[in-house]
């Protein structure tokens, strides 16, 4: 039972990250390689506010969201001055910078040793310290994020995100500034990533920079691409696919000495098949050209 609850919580963290990424890549056409940076900053700020400042989880999370909004400005600047692949390369550089800071700014982040003893969240004297109670809490947070995105994508604002994705020049010819909509997509996405980071930090009670590297950013992009760009259920399906597939492959009986590598190969082949035969992903409405 605990195993399944653990998988559920991990799935939920990735669903939040995939939804945030989908707003950028799927709805606004911004292929960011720095999503793990915002996820990591959210986790670190939450952890530091909980352990060093002694704030409650809700205040720590609020602080992390605000910090992520402020630190979004490099990406907003990239988005206003760079397009397509050049934007992706700039975000890649930003991801590398953030990773380097997390590894090397020892006075604040404790470098590769990370931050330990992050307390579990609690409200009104109740602490979500058991696995079932934490799973309920993370489900509630994930559901709230999901409902937020469902609501957002029914607004005229979301239509503008899609317009920016489809044709920026046409947007300008109708008096709309693409940079305004890109900025809001980036702000919302980084704020939501902070929520995933905060959940991650309090669930594992320990964070270190290895959880927020470029590999993680690529994993999040793969979730959105496989699930399908521009579709909420695609982000959910992509996150489930990526988290559950390695777990399913565990049940294939392979000699222990090669099990990990064979599982990864099967995993990679399945991904190639998905990309080849379903270029729009499971539920996608759009693909990068």
């Amino acid at each position: 039972m605990n195993y399944f609850l653990h998988i559920l919580i991990v799935c939920e963290i990735y669903i939040i990250l995939a939804l945030a990424m989908n707003l950028l890549a799927g709805y606004s056409g911004l292929l960011s390689l720095a999503q793990a940076a915002y996820y990591g900053i959210g986790a670190y700020v939450s952890a530091l506010l909980l352990t060093q400042a002694g704030l409650s989880f809700s205040l720590s999370l609020l602080g992390a969201i605000c910090f992520n909004l402020i630190i979004s400005f490099p990406i907003i600047w990239f988005a206003s001055s760079l397009r397509d692949l050049y934007f992706a390369i700039a975000t890649l550089a930003w991801q590398i910078i953030v990773s380097a800071i997390l590894y090397n700014w020892q006075a604040v982040t404790n470098g590769p040793f990370g931050i330990m003893g992050i307390p579990k969240p609690g409200f009104g004297g109740f602490v979500f310290d058991s696995l079932p109670s934490f799973a309920s809490f993370s489900s509630l947070v994930t559901l709230s994020v999901l409902l937020f995105f469902i609501g957002l994508h029914r607004t005229p604002l979301s239509r503008c995100f899609l317009g920016v994705r489809d044709d920026q020049l046409a947007m300008m010819s109708f008096g709309k500034k693409p940079s305004y909509f890109k900025s809001w997509a980036i702000l919302i996405s980084s704020g939501v990533s902070a929520i995933a980071g905060g959940l991650f930090a309090v669930y594992f009670s320990y964070i270190d920079p290895s959880s927020f590297t470029l590999d993680e950013s690529i994993l999040i992009i793969c979730m959105v691409l496989v699930g399908g760009l521009g579709a909420i259920r695609g982000s959910v399906a992509g996150a489930l696919f990526y988290v559950l597939l390695p777990e399913v492959l565990r049940f294939i009986h392979i000699p222990d000495s090669i099990a990990a590598n064979v599982r990864m190969m099967i995993y990679a082949v399945l991904l190639i098949l998905v990309v080849m035969y379903r270029p729009y992903g499971f539920f996608g409405k759009y693909t990068f050209e």
Binding site: L162, R165, D167, A170, K285
Partner: peptide, 14 residues
């Protein structure tokens, strides 16, 4: 230059 992935209605609204 229409928004190719959006419906005709969404194009007009946009």
């Amino acid at each position: 230059r229409v928004f190719k992935n959006l419906s005709v209605l969404d194009n007009l609204l946009l």
